[in-house]
Simulated scan of single mutants.
Amino acid sequence: MDNIMDCFNDDSSIDNKMSDMLDRMRGGIILCNFDLNTQSSIVIYSNCGWSEITGYTPEQLQSEKGGNPQALILEDDKKQSDEDYARQMAEGNTYELMYRIIHRSCGIRWVIDKGIVKSLPNNIMQNLSVVTEITKIKEQEEAMKLLAQQDQLTEVNNKATFNTLSKNILEKQNNSLHALLMLDIDDFKDVNDRYG
């Protein structure tokens, strides 16, 4: 990925042929400079794919979010994303993160963000990210998870899920009192045999 960063000149421009090629790629590419002194970001380059995934042009990102793509990360995912980023940066200069973003007009989207960070003079960190949207994959995973955990007819947790949840509660609250309520419903076997 260093070679891609080297495609950008000192004046942070990119030639037209390279720009055309990057715009045709699936997924998003964004290059930002982060000033450690002012804690501010500026977008150097982003392709059309990045704007499609996020709903932001570089100008909109600059005016609405201070140029910081991390401002698009869903609040619930920020802590984990920051921890994963810090851990991976301690091991090298590349990272791979998965989190949700808030699209400018279309709600929440899941993405995988793979990137590289390069130190520049004057306390500037340059960050090149390749972002891939995985919303449909995550929705399919969630649907499969529900199928594995619930009865399809009643949408009640199945026996395996009940056992796991019960075990987790008992392990976390081992000094607490717990109760289990069991109901015997007359003739329910007939209903279960017919519909269950």
Rank of each mutant, 00 (worst) to 15 (best):
M1F: 03
M1I: 01
N3G: 12
M5A: 05
D6T: 13
F8Y: 13
S13R: 09
N16Q: 05
N16L: 05
S19K: 13
M21R: 14
M25I: 10
G27L: 03
I29C: 00
C32K: 00
D35V: 03
D35R: 03
D35C: 15
S41P: 04
I44V: 09
I44H: 02
N47G: 00
G49S: 02
S51H: 03
T54I: 00
P58V: 00
E59M: 12
E59Q: 00
S63L: 06
E64A: 12
N68M: 03
A71S: 15
I73G: 12
D77Q: 05
Q80S: 14
E91M: 08
T94Y: 13
Y95P: 02
E96V: 13
L97I: 01
I102N: 05
S105M: 12
C106F: 04
G107M: 13
V117Y: 05
V117M: 12
K118V: 05
S119L: 13
N122S: 14
N123V: 03
N123Q: 15
N127S: 10
E133M: 01
E133I: 05
I134Q: 00
T135M: 02
K136W: 08
K136R: 01
E139L: 04
E141Y: 03
A143W: 08
K145N: 07
L147N: 12
A148Q: 03
Q149P: 01
L153I: 07
T154H: 00
T154C: 06
A160I: 02
T164E: 12
L165P: 05
S166F: 15
K167C: 06
K167D: 10
I169L: 14
Q173V: 13
Q173K: 15
S176K: 06
S176N: 14
L180F: 08
D184T: 08
D186V: 11
D190Y: 07
D190S: 02
D193N: 12
R194Y: 01
